[in-house]
C-alpha cells in the first residue's frame, strides 16, 4: 500500500521530469537555449496554446473531446479584431469591450457545440469536428478571406512590453491558468467535471444533471479558446481564418503529454501547462539546436510518444484504444 502511494506520487511528477530532462538536453546541446530571451520566446509561443489547451482540458476531464478549436479560435480572433476596430481601434477607449465580446462569441460557439452533442446525442468527437468546420467557414464569411490588421499599441503591448524579460501575454496566460485552476479545484462545476470523467452513470445516479454539466464544460472551453484567440492575435497583430490553424492536434497532444487521460477523470490544468511547455520546448529546442526543419515533425512525433509512454499511468490499463 505504502509503496503504491509513493509510486503514485512519483508518477504525478513524471511529465514535469520529462520537461526538465528536455530543457537540460537542449541546454547541453546549445547553451543559448538556456537564455532568458529564448525562454521568453517559448513563453510567447506557449501562451495562446496554453489557453486553448486549458479549454480542451475541461472537456477531456469529462471524458469527451473537443475538436472545434480551430474554428472557434478563428471566429473569436475575427470577432475580436472587428469589434476592436469598430469601437475605435484601441483598448484604451471602448475597444476593450472586444475582449469580452470575443469571449461571448467563444462561449456561444461552445454552447452550440455542447447542445448538439448532448441534445442530438452525437459523440463529441463528431459534433465538435463539425462545429470546427462551421467555425472556420464562419470566420471566412466574416473576413471574406482577408486579414484584419491590429495596430493598437496598447493591445500590442501584450507582446512588446516586457516585465522581467517576459512579455505581458505570458502573464496574461498565467492569469488565465490560475482562473482555470480555481474553476477546476474550488467550484462545483469544476469538481463535477471530474465526477463525470470518473463515472458518468454513477454521477447521474447521484442526481447530477450530467447534460447540463457537459454543456457548461463546452461553453467554458469556448471561452478559453477565445482567450487563446486574443493572445494569438496579440502575438501576430493579425486576425484571419488561419489564426486557428494548427491548434487542434497540438492542443490535444499537449493535454495528453501533460498526463491528463483521454478517458477522463484524471489530470488537470497544471498538467496541461507542463504538456504545453513540453511541446513548445521541443519545438523551440529543435530550432535552437539547428535540426533541419524537414525532420522536425518526425522528431516531435518520437519525443511525444516517449513523453506519453513515460507519463502514463498504466496500472489497471489492460489495453489502449
Amino acid at each position: 500500500m505504502k509503496h503504491g502511494l509513493v509510486m503514485d506520487n512519483i508518477r504525478k511528477w513524471v511529465p514535469f521530469l520529462v520537461l526538465l530532462v528536455l530543457v537540460l538536453f537542449f541546454a547541453a546541446v546549445n547553451p543559448h537555449f538556456l537564455s532568458l530571451r529564448n525562454f521568453a520566446r517559448i513563453a510567447v509561443s506557449s501562451s495562446p496554446a496554453l489557453m486553448v489547451a486549458v479549454g480542451a482540458t475541461f472537456v477531456i476531464l469529462m471524458g469527451s473531446i473537443d475538436l472545434s478549436m480551430e474554428g472557434t479560435v478563428a471566429v473569436c480572433a475575427v470577432v475580436f479584431a472587428m469589434l476592436l476596430n469598430r469601437l475605435g481601434g484601441s483598448l484604451a477607449h471602448m475597444g476593450w469591450l472586444a475582449i469580452p465580446g470575443a469571449m461571448i462569441a467563444g462561449g456561444v460557439l461552445g454552447a452550440v457545440n455542447g447542445l448538439i452533442h448532448v441534445r442530438l446525442r452525437i459523440p463529441s468527437f463528431m459534433a465538435s469536428l463539425s462545429m470546427g468546420f462551421v467555425g472556420v467557414g464562419l470566420s471566412l464569411l466574416m473576413t471574406g478571406g482577408n486579414r484584419i490588421l491590429i495596430g493598437d499599441p496598447l493591445f500590442r503591448s501584450l507582446l512588446t512590453v516586457r516585465i522581467m524579460s517576459f512579455p505581458l501575454m505570458a502573464y496574461a496566460a498565467l492569469g488565465g491558468l490560475l482562473v482555470a485552476w480555481f474553476i477546476q479545484g474550488r467550484t462545483t462545476i469544476g469538481r463535477n467535471f471530474y465526477a463525470i470523467g470518473g463515472g458518468e452513470d454513477l454521477a447521474r445516479a447521484s442526481g447530477l444533471n450530467v447534460g447540463r454539466v457537459r454543456v457548461i464544460g463546452f461553453v467554458l472551453a469556448g471561452v478559453f479558446f477565445a482567450l487563446g484567440a486574443v493572445l494569438a492575435v496579440a502575438r501576430l497583430g493579425i486576425a484571419e481564418t488561419e489564426t486557428g490553424t494548427g491548434f487542434m492536434f497540438l492542443s490535444i497532444t499537449s493535454v495528453v503529454v501533460g498526463g491528463t487521460a483521454l478517458a477522463g477523470g484524471s489530470g488537470g490544468v497544471w498538467n496541461t501547462l507542463v504538456g504545453v511547455l513540453i511541446v513548445n520546448v521541443i519545438g523551440n529546442g529543435m530550432v535552437v539546436v539547428g535540426l533541419p526543419d524537414y525532420l522536425q515533425d518526425g522528431v516531435l512525433g518520437l519525443l511525444v510518444i516517449t513523453a506519453v509512454y513515460l507519463s502514463m499511468d498504466r496500472r489497471g490499463l489492460s489495453f489502449a484504444r
Partner: peptide
C-alpha cells in the same frame, strides 16, 4: 507501449511527413 492511438498515429504521421519532406 499503450499510447492512445490518437497520439501514436499523430506522431507516426509526423514521422511520415518528415520522410516525405
Amino acid at each position: 507501449l499503450k499510447v492512445p492511438s490518437f497520439i501514436s498515429t499523430l506522431a507516426v504521421g509526423g514521422i511520415a511527413l518528415s520522410v516525405g519532406q
